[in-house]
């Protein structure tokens, strides 16, 4: 589904991440593991086309990201990638339903309210559609962020430290949700985490070594 070859990202002279080769098949569920500062977040942003690596090639779903520039790349990202950022970043000015409709709108896809409400219900937050993000618990907000990431049925779902602030049972539940939703659309899933509890919950693991500095 994606192929990374000789990818490296440097900020100034400090290498943030280096990965020689990584190939994932469609529908595979991966853990991207590594200590803090090993470059997990950076790599997710590279896969999402948010960061252009200083070296190497990134091919996602048959598209070489180097060939996509400007708004074409934004458009591709909106339709092909679902991102659950570590801080979730739900839009505080919009209620839960509008947050999901926003994802459809910005991707240039038709806004499907039935799909939105169905998805929220499937994630157990169906009755929170009219709440604003500040009125949600951490776990509820997490589910909404997952819903927003999969609402456009992207081929690639990326989650950054989704269990960071959750207790054991919620951590396991969140992982289960992510996998269920990825499975439901046949998406490839990459979960970046340094959380040891996540390791047994995902079938494939890619370790990032601490980059030498």
């Amino acid at each position: 589904m994606f192929v990374l070859t000789g990818v490296a990202q440097r900020y100034g002279r400090t290498p943030a991440v280096r990965i020689d080769a990584w190939r994932a098949q469609p529908g595979e569920h991966w853990l991207l593991a590594g200590d803090s500062g090993s470059g997990k977040t950076t790599l997710l942003h590279i896969l999402a086309g948010l960061t252009t690596p200083t070296e190497g090639s990134v091919v996602v779903g048959g598209t070489d990201l180097a060939t996509l520039a400007g708004s074409a790349r934004d458009r591709w990202r909106g339709r092909s990638v679902g991102l659950v950022p570590q801080r979730l970043h739900l839009v505080a000015a919009l209620d839960v339903r509008s947050n999901l409709l926003l994802a459809q709108f910005l991707a240039g896809l038709p806004q499907d309210r039935a799909r939105v409400d169905e998805l929220l219900a499937a994630l157990g937050v169906g009755d929170l559609a009219l709440r604003y993000p500040r009125q949600l618990s951490q776990g509820q907000a997490q589910r909404v962020a997952v819903a927003r990431a999969v609402v456009n049925r992207p081929a690639l779902v990326l989650a950054d430290e989704p269990t960071a602030s959750l207790d054991d049972s919620h951590a396991a539940a969140t992982l289960r949700l992510l996998r269920q939703q990825a499975e439901a659309t046949g998406a490839t899933l990459v979960v970046a985490s340094h959380d040891a509890r996540v390791r047994p919950l995902l079938p494939h693991t890619r370790m990032l070594a601490q980059t030498p500095r």
Partner: peptide, 16 residues
């Protein structure tokens, strides 16, 4: 700025 960043992540162009 976080809202604007997530909008970009959701597919919004700079022009948007």
């Amino acid at each position: 700025r976080h809202d604007l960043a997530i909008m970009r992540a959701l597919g919004a162009s700079r022009a948007r």
